[in-house]
Design a binder for these strands. Structure first.
Lengths: 214, 214
DNA sequence: TAGATTGTTAATCGATTAACAATC
DNA sequence: TAGATTGTTAATCGATTAACAATC
């Protein structure tokens, strides 16, 4: 299933729409939703909602709107969230451990959440063998083997900034296709690897700007 | 110090430039940097670097470039990072505790890092009094008093999604001016409160899209 | 002086919004 | 049929890039 050249600005809004639909589906408030209301709840204009969805097909009915459950399932298909995606966490400090814990719990509790953390890695030998939510911390030496044998496609990097680039390179070499980076550095990856950044320092510094009196 | 109507797209790049300058200043590699090299290191085009900086003044010299240390200090002024900014963490689960720990350590280790976590709050009475890096967990009842008496301007929300909006409202009422929200929900705040979102689920779902074969 | 690089204006590019015919 | 809302095209808006005179 491929629709070429969809802008990332569009792709970023799809999970937003999906979240609204998940919520509505759970509460069974209604069967239908208009682009106006979906946009309202997602924080996006109604015209943009329609345009975003139209890139992938015709999901609505004129004069009626979109069927919530149907659109929800279609969006899950589009976002590739139908099958379980295996995830590794590299760097098991308190942040890495917390993220692993959070996602493992969510996977167990929410049946529509399809991201499964299934391996933890850390360079510190003292941590090897430590258990977190049923997973033990592995040596970085095992990275490539485990990623390949366990079909891990995504990784979360929570190592100190100075090691992040090396880790990212190793992950790319091991066949990882998407990385969420928490380390406060710009990292480079090959074109076929997707990168998302959760750079808290950057966000906090940006917020500081707006604290100034206006 | 106010320059009206600077676009957020511009403000978001300033911390990126600052990080590059911090790095260069630490290593004392050189005294000067061109927009070309600064852009290179920050991942931004050279013309855009010059245009971004030009919003705030004339910091460079034609034919020469920008003085690293000078520009670094000017950027710190512009971003309002000269004085310590006090921060509260609301929701002390494993993620909240990890973030508090991370930032408190960074504040102690890096003298140019001016964000100081100085209060922790949680709704769970079992956690009240627990210590994290020298701070005890307080009751939510104390939120407003403590924020006002300790001059706390910024908050990090790490409570479960269903409580995030209430917490944000309470924070806004207590006079908080900027919020970094980790809860996976859209929250609304008054216009005078700045909001940054660290919505990991959204990022991971976006990444999932790109895992599809092309 | 010759070479380099800024600050700034004009041109381009891309994303959002408005408008509306099609149609349920 | 009358009212509503989609999918889509055209208009607008804003952000980035290219170009270049000014000048160190």
């Amino acid at each position: 299933m491929r629709w070429k050249k969809i802008s990332d600005a569009v792709v970023r809004r799809l999970p937003l729409y999906l979240r609204v639909l998940d919520e509505l589906a759970k509460n069974k408030d209604a069967k239908l939703i208009s682009s106006h209301e979906l946009g309202e709840r997602a924080g996006v204009g109604p015209a943009l909602v329609r345009k975003d969805l139209a890139w992938f097909g015709e999901f609505g009915k004129q004069g009626v709107g979109y069927e919530i459950e149907y659109l929800r399932l279609e969006l899950r298909k589009i976002l590739n969230l139908e099958n379980v995606i295996r995830v590794a966490v590299v760097g098991v400090g308190s942040l890495g451990a917390a993220l692993a814990r959070f996602h493992i719990k969510k996977f167990l509790e929410d049946e529509s959440f399809n991201l499964k953390v299934c391996a933890l890695f850390d360079a510190d030998p003292d941590k090897h063998g430590d258990m977190h939510e049923g997973l033990h911390v592995r040596d970085m030496e095992e990275l490539e083997d485990v990623i390949r044998s366990e079909d891990i496609e995504m990784a979360i990097i929570t190592v100190p900034a100075e090691f992040a680039q090396d880790v990212a390179t190793n992950l790319a070499n091991a066949g990882i296709r998407a990385i969420l980076n928490f380390a406060p550095v710009k990292i480079s990856v090959p074109d076929h690897v997707q990168l998302a950044t959760a750079d808290l320092s950057l966000e906090l510094q940006r917020l500081a700007y707006y604290l100034q009196e206006e």
